[in-house]
Design a protein around this nucleic acid. Sequence first.
DNA 1: GTGAAAGCGCTAACAG
DNA 2: CTGTTAGCGCTTTCAC
Lengths: 315, 315
Amino acid sequence: MCNPGMVAEATKQRVLEAIERLDYRPNGVARDLKRMRTGTVGVIVGDLANPFYAELIKRIEQLTTGAGYTTIICAVDGGATAERARMESLLRQRVSGVFMTYLFGDGATIDAARRAGVPLVGVSVTDERLDCVSCNDGAGARLAVDHLQALGHSRIAYVISGHTEPSTNAARLAGLNQAVLDAGLPVQRPISYAAGTSETRHLDQVLAARTRPTAFFAGNDVTALDLIDRLEAAGVRVPDDASVIGFDDIPVAALDRVSLTTLRQPIAQLAEWGVTRLSERIERPGAPPAQLALDPELIVRGTTAAVPRRRREPR
Amino acid sequence: MCNPGMVAEATKQRVLEAIERLDYRPNGVARDLKRMRTGTVGVIVGDLANPFYAELIKRIEQLTTGAGYTTIICAVDGGATAERARMESLLRQRVSGVFMTYLFGDGATIDAARRAGVPLVGVSVTDERLDCVSCNDGAGARLAVDHLQALGHSRIAYVISGHTEPSTNAARLAGLNQAVLDAGLPVQRPISYAAGTSETRHLDQVLAARTRPTAFFAGNDVTALDLIDRLEAAGVRVPDDASVIGFDDIPVAALDRVSLTTLRQPIAQLAEWGVTRLSERIERPGAPPAQLALDPELIVRGTTAAVPRRRREPR
DNA sequence: GTGAAAGCGCTAACAG
DNA sequence: CTGTTAGCGCTTTCAC
């Protein structure tokens, strides 16, 4: 009335004072209900204790927070049932979108979200049905095989331990087989055992074989580190008697005492692309899913070396 | 009517079928608004990339999920301003409670939550104003000093690098000083440097001193691991020339190649007590805050050893 | 016992 | 341009 386009200064002060005095805070729940959309996104993660995922989640949280979203974390190491249940609860909370960093084969979870019209973005996973950014596992395997072959290795085995994201695991195993084949080397049987247990029968059998692998390509760094411990406990020195190469480049890999040769994932870009893409999909949904694969970088450290003479492949 | 206390079977089926067909899902936002409380709790964390916190958050998330809550993660490595802002957003979302695993000195954040009537539980932090579970840092320091003294060490310095939770850092430093004093040993100047940088001037100065410390008590395992790398890069072998002891017992500490002597935190109990306490406080608020300190366990591995002869303290 | 109605706190549309 | 109002989807109370 007196000031066009604004309230009287005194009134403004009185309102502000009342806000202060009553400790008023807008109710986000009411706001979300009215607007029929929330500023909340979910993140489904397999194992937060794996430093690669911890770092990835950290970055995703940072970026989504920066974009004004609130982040709900859901750990699903319980399996497919847990995954489905957690998605259901996210959907009931009317999240605006979900990041999937872990995918079970079963598509029920993905379908549920799609039917609900909630955009999904896979980060570090691969699936045709959703937008995904991941590392080019095939390219990583090729780098690894080239490096190992140059060092004289010919028997390179894939190793996986316990809970690893299935689509990633499959892609890395397939990538290694392909790379080994392309290099003209013999494909080895993959080795798998449960991490955190003392069950190593399979590994022991492999090591006892006369023509055992001289190099191991682990499904990820956590597995590689565990493998090295078991190898050395079994009297196989790394890299003198066998080479080991990991995947991810988690921070401990760079420690002098660990010095793990590995494939570095472009984790910052993974998170960035994922968050950008989810924001886009939230703003205008319905575009066909797109996949993006980022190349890893080979970081040569101290767990790979030339094949020991006595084990060099006989011609 | 026909079935007392229940609807006709046919009707039930029709309803269920309609739910299925329409893909109906109860709206949690509307529910929360009506009930004037949410099933959501916040977790404030400093650095998710520190494996100790990753594991702690993982456990907290597991337990709160099991108790039927939804977990919002807030990372605050940005500092006190970020902490305050994230708490504000949690409060606007009307969370039922908040776990604090990182506390800045400034009490503004705590005050805001208290005025809003939102229960706070500190996990792995210590503050008089809220319910807290943490590790008994003083007891840990004593175990460390006893162990080191038995190995002949007399100059034991505290080392901290970068972003460590302030209240924990303070408690461990104070604990070490007290334990050193009680053991009749000379108190050393604490060493601090920024992790992740190559800035080691302070550390280099310390190492150059004629009566340099023979043992280092690191504020946490991440710091200890970083310190060992720097020490060995400077030509100081661990444990031959200097002993290092960490705090937390993160998984990598147990690797044979790392073999870090450290104080293991009872991480499962920390999470359990925290979640139990927050549930209690949510159900009946207003009880006076209580503190609980759990004893750590000394895990002797390979980074501590007897003082080298030539450096043994002259009598 | 079942069914209708009020209202949580906000936003957006609309009337004045 | 300002002020009022309807209504988001649920729960809970109250009348039948």
